[in-house]
């Protein structure tokens, strides 16, 4: 207890486990919740590419959920 105070600043393996889990699970949850995201991405690329010059690998499709709202975020940088 007293001695733990000295090591407070050290990052424990338990903290690392928790952080790693939070990051990977946020990713996996989005993927599992919307398995269509990859197809959607492909379709968007097809449509947009008909009209403007884009780099397919730069398109970012993301489904985010805050406590109350869900946001589908699509980022398309134009060349």
């Amino acid at each position: 207890m007293l001695f733990n105070w000295f090591r407070k600043n050290k990052k424990t393996s338990a903290n690392m486990a928790k952080e790693r889990l939070q990051i990977i699970l946020a990713h996996e949850r989005a993927e599992n919740k919307a398995p269509f995201l990859d197809d959607l991405r492909q379709d968007i690329i097809k449509v947009i590419a008909k009209y403007v010059d884009i780099d397919p690998s730069s398109i970012n499709v993301n489904l985010q959920k805050d406590s109350s709202i869900e946001v589908l975020e699509i980022n398309i940088p134009i060349k």
Partner: peptide, 16 residues
């Protein structure tokens, strides 16, 4: 192990 920081605590798991 939890006290040593080598195992996630009940609260850690619940937060995840």
């Amino acid at each position: 192990l939890v006290k040593k920081g080598d195992m996630m605590s009940k609260d850690d798991v619940l937060q995840v």
